[in-house]
Amino acid sequence: MKTLLRALLITLLAIGGTFALDPFRNYQLALAAACFAAVAGLTVLVGLTGQLSLGHAVLMAAGGYGFAFAASAVDGPWPLALLAGLAAAAVVSGLLGLLLGAAAARLRGPYLAGLTLALVIALPAAANTLPLGGDQGAPAPFFPVPEALAALIAVEQWHAWLAIVVAAIAVTPLVVLRSGSAGLRMRAVLDDETASRLSAVDPGAVKTGAFVASAVPAGLGGAVLAIATQQVTPGGYGLAFSLLLVVAAVIGGLGSIGGAAIGSVLVTVLPWLIDELAALAPDDLGRRLDGNLALLLFGAGLIALTTAWPGGAARLLDRLRAARPLRFATPSTTTER
């Protein structure tokens, strides 16, 4: 109950915050919210069960396609289309997550990473082979500002609201799950599979379940992107984006949902900010730095964080709040297993 109230409070706070932002910043906020949903799922999967998925972009794409097709198919008032789209996004990504989870239950770390990597690479081919609209992708319906609000807010702000609400719906169950007995079981499996098996915890079931629980928020994140951009294209969900999700999870601190929020904002805003700075450099150099400098810094950040400072941003905040008891300050980090 406490978690739900808190979620509600944060959601309202975030919606209030959109009034301080201009349209483009609100659009970026919607993107960050989409990332947040996916990264929250990823960070729980990696941090609590130790399964590294490089394919969360594909789970987002699955959610996005599900949303686009279902919401376009519904011929009714917009809330109905929205709900149908979200339900489809959850179902499609959940099913794909179930498949991956079933595979993951049988595979050790690098094998799973390999499978998910091949999945990302196969996405454009799948979009061309299956009836998904090829490179142009599938159009998602446009949700205009409701009339009652039209005088008050611009469309970007409205989409930011939708994004925040959907992200909240996606992430809150994850928080509940993580702090409940399911989270305990995940940690048990991570610590020692044999011991957990002896305590009647089936590692395979836990791993599969964790994958599904991680896939659904990712799918909803994909739906958020489809709302904000009215389009789902395979090109938007490539390897680079998938790796960016991993970056966000690691920067935030693996296992930490608050960290996922920080990481998502960083990977959304920093590349843009750095490119603005790179544009100030002389022509030729600026062109070379553009896009690449952000990547370089993210890569260096990943390495530095993992080798020197494995807790990520979440740990930093813990340090700042030194009053906190220490035992809370060490969630599952990259150094644990």
Binding site: L52, R108, L243, L295, F298, L302, I303, T307
Partner: peptide, 16 residues
């Protein structure tokens, strides 16, 4: 004996 950090550092290295 923890596979994850190695993979993540390698991914960082790719980007760099």
């Amino acid at each position: 004996h923890a596979p994850l950090p190695g993979i993540i550092v390698a991914i960082g290295l790719v980007m760099v």
